[in-house]
Design a protein around this nucleic acid. Structure first.
Lengths: 205, 205
DNA sequence: CCCGAACGATACCGATCGGTATCACGCGGG
DNA sequence: CCCGCGTGATACCGATCGGTATCGTTCGGG
């Protein structure tokens, strides 16, 4: 096996990531594919090409690993919001349409694996569970940012508009997953535009 | 029909349903409270005041029990659609508003325990699983019925309107569950009315 | 009245769960 | 050079998982 080159990278074409990242990657894949509760720590460790012991050196408990994973996913969505606000400074309407497009682009993936937050919350019936709190905090923050964008867009009732847009985004994910609505992305975009229209958004135009 | 089931007569000590119903009731309660996968058959049997053996006499497997439960839940929604169609014959707009109100009224419950379909699908990653097929069939049927109602209401693009209303209903449930939107019921109704307005619904004939 | 089916209880099956203990090895920094 | 830490491997823990086997009891309809 490791005959001449002492250099690592024999069993992986790219340089191997540190165990912690490998574990998080493996957990993400399995959590999405099988569901939080159906996956055992043993399976995660194996897929990460390590052992349960190594996993428990980095995460106190399986639930802590779940929480950390969800934290990363939430950060991904947050940074997408950051980006759109940076790219369309002050233009609420453009920001909303951009994040809507972001959600729409993610729909094929969500249709296959489901939404990480929605699926996880189903396995976290305890409202005090740290991972569940994290999800709810994330969703509340996202909703606040959406409301702010609606205000910026000059919509008449920003609170109502943000609520409806939130419904549409969440519902598009669910309906894409259960296959009851085709062309979900286009429908989502159309519906959000209609809400902005109805609310009298300033529009960049 | 001649022979009545062993219904609890008034001299029975405890009004007790037949084991099968008790098991389904217990399963419903636990599935909603803890989640499909987190509940063991032992726990279901105990809450139904019976044993695992009795449970397996009525259901081939735990998954079959899950499927049967979901079938009952789906039937409940279907009969709600039946009722509104019967109560507002030919009036698509009134039908849509009635089923929307039905969803809105269920939101407090959904906010607490989550949507049975959404939560279950998270624990059924296998698309071939009978219970998952049942959910997807149910959602597809519901979407078709909604489209028919939109046609009846004279909306310009019934397919699009039904899709958007579906998004709103599903999204309202999710957002109520994760607490990101308050007054979800009123918002849902407002949004659906706006879609009918925009689509040029007849208003009742 | 009595027979068989449904029922309740208990014990058991192999597998897997989340989590821990132990130990040997490799590698890098003081 | 060598010490120590992170690592990987293995074995183990008690508990629980879904599912089955074997009892004795209860009860209602032919």
């Amino acid at each position: 096996m490791a005959s001449s080159p002492p250099r690592p990278g024999r069993d992986t074409r790219v340089a191997r990531l540190p165990p912690r990242e490998r574990i998080l990657d493996a957990a993400e894949e399995l959590f999405l594919r099988e569901g939080i509760r159906a996956v055992g720590v043993q399976a995660i460790a194996e897929r990460a090409q390590t052992t349960k012991m190594a996993l428990y050196r980095h995460f106190d408990t399986k639930d802590a690993l779940i929480e950390e994973w969800l934290r990363i996913v939430a950060a991904g969505y947050s940074s997408a919001f950051d980006r759109t606000e940076a790219e369309h400074p002050g233009d609420g309407r453009a920001q909303i349409l951009a994040v809507t497009r972001f959600f729409a682009e993610g729909l094929p993936e969500v249709a296959e694996r489901g939404c990480p937050f929605v699926n996880s919350i189903a396995g976290l019936p305890d409202r005090q569970h740290p991972a569940r709190r994290l999800i709810e905090d994330h969703k509340a923050t996202q909703r606040r940012r959406l409301t702010a964008m609606c205000e910026r867009a000059g919509v008449r009732d920003p609170d109502e508009a943000a609520a409806e847009i939130t419904f549409l985004m969440e519902g598009a994910q669910i309906s894409a997953q259960n296959g009851s609505v085709d062309r979900a992305g286009e429908r989502l975009l159309t519906a959000v535009e209609a809400i902005l229209e109805r609310g009298g958004a300033d529009g960049g135009s």
